[in-house]
Design a protein around this nucleic acid. Structure first.
Lengths: 185, 185
DNA sequence: CTTGTCTATGCAACGAGTTGCATAGAAGGA
DNA sequence: TCCTTCTATGCAACTCGTTGCATAGACAAG
């Protein structure tokens, strides 16, 4: 399991509450790792009792008080340990691929709308990534030594961009295939 | 949940036992959907009691008897229903992306070996896909009307190939970034 | 001759992840 | 004024998925 490690990374980048983490997972981080607030709260509790994170009560006006979490030494060590052990071939789950193969036993043309919806969703996501890239990684970076955090975040973002572009090309291919099958019946 | 639907598609393509399904999930299908034999057996039980699949006892010599499952009318209808309802933005989980961002708080250079291992794994997978493509989709196809099943399986395979190529390019990019960071310290 | 692998199915226990619900004050729109 | 949304945390119940183990005959390698 790596949700705890994803949380550690996110908290190292910037400490925050469970709620804030959930929002980050919805936005930036959620594009390569997602989790609901329930999961995050539960895991944070465990991480706290294991001494991986420290908590600090932050009173607020005009909104509920929050608990701000930050990474403790033990958590940093745990992350380091995880980083040094190999991980394996991520298990993939592409619902759409199952649907496409399933369409052979149903009406292939009925999938065209679905594929177009996905095309649109990936177009939006790509635009969002590109906007983020322009915003955060436009200039040549600060003078002097490169900031590893910034460089690595950019590398992950470039992966997201490459993924979306690949998906768009493939979805276009799939759409053409579905049209061809619909025409040739 | 769509494991049941993945099983339906696989059984429509070819009826088989739980064991055989598990092997298919390890091989071809498993590249875009994975499941262990336990999960498959449990889900098959439920699908059977729901009338989605039919079972047939097949005695064998020199090996244990098996139960061959095939899709029943109810299962076909269930699949059709699922195919017609929209599915949503697959939740992605890229352990490696978490590791890369985490490396900023540890030693980036220590990740180079890991990235190279993944590069090798994706290279192997790409070779496997390409071999499958040559084997199954080399010729111009049977004369006359195109076979939807064949066409759609090929479209999914092209997706796998595009994915692996994208991953290889990105991993190369990541490796270069890590080298750059390791040098500039 | 023993050990290991392959086929084939399954139970039990656990951990991961989802869904529904509850609370509660502040702010903004119909 | 009422309804919804946002912030913030959490419980309870459930389903999904993984891991370890068990059985058992056939066959191949050491």
């Amino acid at each position: 399991m790596a949700l705890e490690h994803a949380i550690l990374v996110s908290l190292l980048e910037k400490p925050g509450s469970g709620y804030e983490l959930a929002r980050r997972f919805e936005r930036s981080i959620g594009y390569f790792w997602n989790a609901t607030h329930q999961q995050i709260y539960r895991v944070l509790k465990r991480m706290e009792s294991d001494g991986w994170v420290d908590v600090r009560d932050v009173p607020q006006q005009a909104r509920p008080d929050k608990k701000e979490y930050s990474v403790a030494a033990v958590g940093r060590a745990a992350l380091s340990g995880w980083l040094h052990e190999p991980i394996e071939p991520e298990s993939v789950r592409h619902d759409l691929a199952v649907k496409i193969r399933g369409a052979a036993f149903d009406d292939p043309a009925a999938l065209i709308g679905e594929v177009e919806r996905h095309y649109q969703a990936h177009t939006d996501r790509l635009a969002h990534y590109l906007a983020g890239e322009r915003r955060d990684f436009a200039g040549p970076g600060a003078p002097g030594a490169p900031d590893p955090g910034r460089e690595l975040q950019h590398a992950v973002l470039r992966g997201g961009i490459a993924y979306e572009r690949m998906m768009l090309a493939w979805l276009d291919d799939v759409r053409a295939t579905l049209h061809r099958l619909a025409a040739g019946r």
